[in-house]
Design a protein around this nucleic acid. Structure first.
Lengths: 330, 330
DNA sequence: CTGAAAGCGCTTACAG
DNA sequence: CTGAAAGCGCTTACAG
């Protein structure tokens, strides 16, 4: 009676009076094995609570089915939705996500040790990665998939929505409604999602002979959005505020209405980006750009499968069209 | 030049001109190994991008450091905060969370196959588990930790806040403020968190010679809270609404104010449970019971470590005191 | 259809 | 301090 030991194929073999090989075959649907024998083994296994150790199997060249997911900060509410959905999709596909959270600052420190596992892939949401992670993944033969940004030049699979197209469409819409004095609340410095979104606005303003009045830095959070909006709206004369994401837009909306007593949308438009669940809540009714979650998931799963099927295929970069959702803040 | 192969200890040994054993020792801080040699091996490993395969190591009786986390539905916003925080804490402790998401209905289907990995533990948030998962975990020697509910009678480590104490305190507070006509918006049927919270209210009402006017079922979501509040407030004369969690309380608050034109808090009190981030946003300012996240994490991590250190220790059940946070809806 | 054997990448007594 | 060898739990040619 040994303690603290996992039930093993040998245990099942002994209990059922067959060879270890037979046990292994019983769990491989296509292996040659007498029907009765398979039944006996499976019953014995069930009784003993045996299930093949996936890790030992992965040593035989099988896939581990382990996929690391670097999730990014969860107070960016879109990240939370994204991660929840990705986890569910991965589960459904028989892949097991090792989630790596925490702030961007420590992401590297957290990812590196996770590479000790024989990962089928590493999916990175949004943030950037140090050169070391890139190199280590290459050396360890761990495919990388980026979601939320396109890595230009690099041979890496990427999925992102077309950020600048989205904000350009939003800006044109606001211009058509008569807005002229634009402000922008940005995301964290260095994130291409934020700079691309800004670029879209600049482009639409240029077309109309306009230019951006002011920009305030923010960190993609609700609280950050409040602060940024307060500073922007008290310093400048602005009638259209585009925010780099929804979390900050909700904060901006709250500050504008309840602290600065601005009338949204009558004397100020506020537009977000992502279309998180809260955006459609009646107390916000936020006009925003939908960053399509299901379509993004479809692409991630497709890219993952394609990469596993053919590690040598050329990298693919998928751009998804965002969609302007007009509600009651534009 | 082989492709699609992970760098291996043998590769490093060959490159550095040492034995495989030496490579292994170089990565074990306390192993006997000549200083110069260790340095050489580590440098070579770095160059090659080698890092020991954690799974192969786990076959030697080492821990896998893999911990499965059954997270529960993410549209219960507290679950999302909980999971994000737990992931970060686990990462920081050198444990790697395999996250299992999805709705409660499919949780079993999703957990079972995850048991193929040599898990150090399985942490279950909130929901209940089928007998089969219990048995399989026992047979596979995977310790179970429950967060968010106490399993009475079972020999399982559990952490939960004291649900009935929390709602009883809230109800007494509302009674002291003059409320007499109480309604309750519940969580999903069968979840003890919800029934315990109801029991706390009943208890406080009894003390005051009062009884509950009505109860509406809900699923712990914002949308569900809206619907439940609408049905409750249009059918009954109620001046105090206690919701089984914050997500549903936010929905209830929104419906009460914007659809039913009720004046909260002047003619109706609304109280939630959990104290999620949104509860303190100025547009809600929700009075609620804080379900202390950091303290809960501390206990989970402590219980996990203690269980790993001594698999035979008696199960521990930790009850955490919730805290009434009065804001502007009571 | 089946079992004995080799091998996956590692660690750890064992014998120097 | 060090290398050769055994063994962790599995799968898969190999030879019946």
């Amino acid at each position: 009676m040994q303690r603290n030991r996992r039930v093993t194929a040998t245990d099942v073999a002994e209990a059922a009076g067959v060879s270890r090989s037979a046990v292994s075959r019983a769990f491989a649907p296509n292996a040659y094995l007498d029907g009765e024998k398979r039944k006996l083994i499976l019953t014995t296994a069930l009784k003993l609570g045996y299930r093949p150790n996936a890790l030992a199997a992965s040593l035989q060249g099988k896939r581990s089915n382990l996929v690391a997911v670097a999730a990014g900060g969860m107070n960016n509410l879109y990240n939370a939705e994204f991660t929840a959905k990705l986890v569910a999709r991965l589960n459904a596909a028989g892949k097991w996500p090792i989630v790596i959270g925490g702030s961007e600052a420590v992401l590297d420190d957290a990812i590196l040790p996770a590479l000790s596992y024989p990962l089928d892939a590493l999916i990175v949401r949004g943030s950037s990665l140090s050169a070391q992670v890139f190199e280590d993944c290459a050396k360890l033969n761990i495919p990388l998939i980026f979601a939320g940004r396109i890595l230009k030049g690099a041979q890496v699979d990427c999925v992102s929505c077309h950020n600048s197209n989205g904000t350009a469409a939003a800006a044109r819409h606001l211009i058509a409604r008569g807005r002229r004095k634009f402000g922008f609340i940005s995301g964290p410095a260095g994130l291409s999602s934020s700079s691309d979104r800004l670029e879209g606005i600049r482009c639409a303003l240029r077309e109309a002979g306009l230019s951006l009045i002011a920009e305030a830095p923010c960190n993609y959070t609700y609280e950050g959005g409040r602060d940024a909006a307060t500073s922007l709206l008290t310093q400048y004369d602005i009638d259209a505020l585009i925010c780099a994401n929804d979390a900050s837009a909700l904060g901006a909306l709250s500050a504008a209405r309840y602290e600065l007593d601005r009338d949204v949308p009558n004397d100020l438009s506020i537009v977000g980006f992502d279309d998180i669940a809260q955006a459609s809540w009646p107390e916000y009714n936020l006009t925003t750009l939908r960053n399509p979650l299901d379509q993004t998931m479809d692409e991630i799963l497709r890219l993952l499968q394609a990469r596993l099927d053919d590690p040598d295929r050329p990298a693919e970069q998928v751009l998804i069209a965002p969609q302007l959702i007009t509600r009651k803040t534009d």
